[in-house]
């Protein structure tokens, strides 16, 4: 409660996110239709009690597609972001802490990743390795960690000079102990903020991939229905575009608000 009072963004984003997650989790109860199955209706059908969000050209139910799409979007973004954070810490923590050659090497690698356009690389990788859910998640994480790794490293660089880290050394604490028990907890706040932003990035990237036809064909993804909507819109099928877009927007917005909210809480200066 205390936290909510401190940040309006956090409150709003948590309300939005929990409703979205709720809808995603209860998709199986809210609709009895299989999102991937065609032929529920004869061609494009506008919203009606039977199809609350209408159907597409092939008679797929947009409502169940949108709900199941929540699962895909959140699953892909959550898992890939967690992986990203894991890799970032594995790279950034020792790089910042030990410095020297290791640091230089790790930073060269991140520089390399940062210097090439990420989305194009992701597209190539998906084409090469094939558009399965696992591949997409792995590829998203592998190409996203450099930004967060830099944040981790920069934080570690400043924190390792604090006197409490020196005090731990004087007590005889080992490097691992110091890195994980003394430094890591103090590095986490900015990393969490960055990873919330990373998550909204991942949602958009996954949607982008499926839009280009590079999503997992066995998953109902918002990107893919938007690709379908691109054709439907010419014959007046606005509902195929509108509902999934609204959901993407709200989800991305609420994840961004989450980042803001986390920032409010962690950064004492932003609380006056």
């Amino acid at each position: 409660m205390f936290l909510f009072r401190r940040s309006r963004s956090l409150t709003i984003s948590l309300i939005l996110l929990s409703s979205i997650i709720f809808l995603g989790l209860t998709a199986g109860i809210l609709t009895d239709k299989d999102p991937l199955k065609t032929g529920y209706s004869q061609g494009l059908t506008p919203p009606s009690p039977q199809f609350p969000m209408g159907t597409d050209q092939l008679g797929r139910d947009v409502f169940s597609w949108t709900l199941y799409g929540i699962r895909t979007a959140l699953f892909v973004s959550l898992v890939s972001t967690s992986l990203t954070v894991l890799i970032s810490i594995t790279v950034g923590l020792p790089a910042g802490y030990f410095g020297g050659k290791l640091d230089q090497l790790l930073m060269r690698v991140t520089d390399f990743f940062l210097s090439i356009p990420r989305f194009i690389l992701i597209i190539f990788a998906v084409i090469i390795f094939g558009p399965t859910l696992t591949n997409i998640i792995l590829i998203l994480s592998v190409f996203s960690w450099p930004t967060i790794a830099r944040i981790v490293r920069a934080e570690v660089l400043s924190i390792k000079e604090r006197e409490y880290v020196q005090a731990a050394k004087v007590l005889g604490a080992g490097n691992f102990d110091i890195m994980f028990n003394e430094i890591l907890p103090n590095v986490m706040p900015p990393v969490l903020v960055a990873s919330a932003l990373q998550m909204s990035d991942a949602i958009l990237a996954e949607a982008g991939l499926s839009f280009l036809g590079l999503g997992d064909p066995n998953m109902a993804s918002w990107g893919r229905i938007l690709a379908i909507a691109r054709q439907a819109i010419y014959v007046g099928g606005w509902w195929t575009l509108a509902f999934p877009s609204i959901f993407i927007t709200i989800t991305v917005l609420s994840v961004n608000l989450l980042a803001d909210g986390l920032n409010d809480i962690f950064n004492p200066k932003s609380i006056r």
Binding site: E163, Y164, Q166, V170
Partner: peptide, 16 residues
């Protein structure tokens, strides 16, 4: 380490 301990200047930054 057991035998030689330290107290630092700034009590604000020497505690985690």
């Amino acid at each position: 380490r057991k035998n030689v301990q330290a107290v630092f200047q700034d009590p604000y930054s020497s505690l985690n």
